[in-house]
Amino acid sequence: MTNNITKFQLFFIFIQTQVGVGLLSLPHEVQKSAKTDGWLSTLIAGVAVQLMLVIYWQLLKRFPTLIYTEITQKILGVFLGRFLNLFIYLNFILVGGLAAILFIKIIKLWLLPLTPGWIISLMILTACVYLAISDLKVIARFYVLASSLILLLAITSIFGWFTPKEFHYLLPIGSSGYKNIVLGSKNSLLAMLGFEGLLFLFPYLIDNKKGVLKTISLANIFITLIYTYFVFITLISFSVDQLALMREPVLNLLRGISYKMVDRVDLIFLSIWIVPMATSTISYLYFASKSAGAKKEHYPKVVLFNGLIIFLITLIPHEDAIVTIFNKYVSYLSYVVVFFIPTLLLILSILLKKNEMSEST
């Protein structure tokens, strides 16, 4: 099969899907609840993701050749399964649209302030649709190649350590309270979304019954450490009051740094970060198209149609109040699709003794 991928490629698909536009504003979002304990919130979010990955793994072992939207029909029946699949499809379309909106806002604010948003959107989504139409193996190879940019990002972030650091901003550890730290982890969880892609990728893995949980666990650890690192470095660079006023603290951290041969490190960082931001949109476009259940010969048309829907979503006004409301309701839907439904499916599959070999009801 041309769509077969290896566990090595799965590792990088996870990274490229999860690490995206959310990283740049994560310290600002987390500090709203967790204050100086935002880095603890990110670690807790990583633990929560790991728990869900174990649930996914247990569910997928019972249905090794079925994707998410096929498992729902296998366990719940055709009618109820298709009803839930509608929510799954809407979730990926809306999350993809939200990711594209945030992507465009950052590009306009930091790089192309005079360029109309619809032009930026058209350029981005044209590239995303072109790659999403390709075979999964082609997408995976691109993600492996694109992941090499993470090394450049890590090197670029080192410049942030040359600005004054105040470690006492973190003290006393835990002062925000357990409740606020947990609330802060909610924002970190939203930034880490993308791991649910395993529910669509698992059937395409070569030797998919061996070592998959270890692979996705290592990917989750890597992503959690990346997010925690950037939250930590911004927390020791800015006070809570300053972070409250910054939309993208990671870029603000690098903005004032300049050397004789290197100027505007923040723009260098953002130029590299364009690729991870785009790969997140590509992944959600792919997941949305797969969840639509189109046959192989109709798949390119479905991707084009979904790309058009996401483009139309990006045309909504980008005022902060509107984007905040949109983000709020998309988050609620994501909780249902990413956390609740898979957990419910696993419980029902155990209680009803359902697996891939059992007869559909």
Rank of each mutant, 00 (worst) to 15 (best):
I173W: 03
G307P: 00
S280E: 01
S41G: 10
T215F: 02
L90C: 07
G194S: 08
I216P: 01
K209I: 03
F11G: 09
L51E: 08
T17Q: 05
M1T: 09
E29G: 08
L131I: 14
V240I: 15
S258Y: 00
F167P: 07
S360K: 15
Q50S: 13
G307Q: 02
Q242W: 04
T234R: 14
Y229I: 12
K137Y: 06
F83W: 01
L315V: 09
A321F: 01
A99V: 11
I173F: 01
Y89E: 06
G77H: 09
I313S: 08
Y286W: 14
T279W: 08
Q9D: 02
I155S: 09
F222Q: 02
S331H: 11
L304H: 08
V250Q: 03
P164H: 13
F287K: 12
I350N: 03
I104C: 06
T65W: 01
M123L: 09
K35S: 13
F167R: 09
V182A: 10
A146F: 02
I93E: 04
T343Y: 05
G77E: 10
Y229K: 13
I236V: 14
L198G: 04
I120W: 01
I124T: 06
V54Y: 05
K7T: 02
G117S: 13
V337K: 00
I119R: 13
R62K: 13
I181C: 07
Y204K: 14
L267A: 10
S217Q: 07
L76K: 12
I88Y: 02
V54T: 03
I257A: 13
K74W: 03
F14S: 07
T215N: 12
L333W: 02
K105D: 09
L218V: 01
F167G: 12
L43V: 14
S25I: 04
I313H: 07
I272L: 15
T6E: 08
K296Y: 02
L315G: 10
G81I: 07
T36F: 06
I155C: 05
G174C: 04
P172H: 12
I44P: 06
Q18Y: 02
L344Q: 10
S175C: 14
N85D: 03
S283M: 05
I274P: 04
E248W: 06
S176Y: 00
Y130N: 15
L98M: 05
N327F: 06
L98Q: 05
Y130P: 12
T65G: 00
F305V: 12
K209Q: 12
L43S: 10
I5C: 00
H168E: 15
H298G: 10
G256N: 11
S176D: 00
F159V: 13
W118S: 14
I268Q: 11
S358T: 15
T42K: 04
L86A: 05
S334N: 07
G20S: 15
I13H: 05
I119E: 08
T215I: 07
Y56D: 05
L23F: 03
F305I: 11
V30C: 05
A219P: 04
I71A: 05
Y89K: 07
S291T: 11
I71R: 04
L26I: 06
K260V: 10
L24K: 10
M357Y: 10
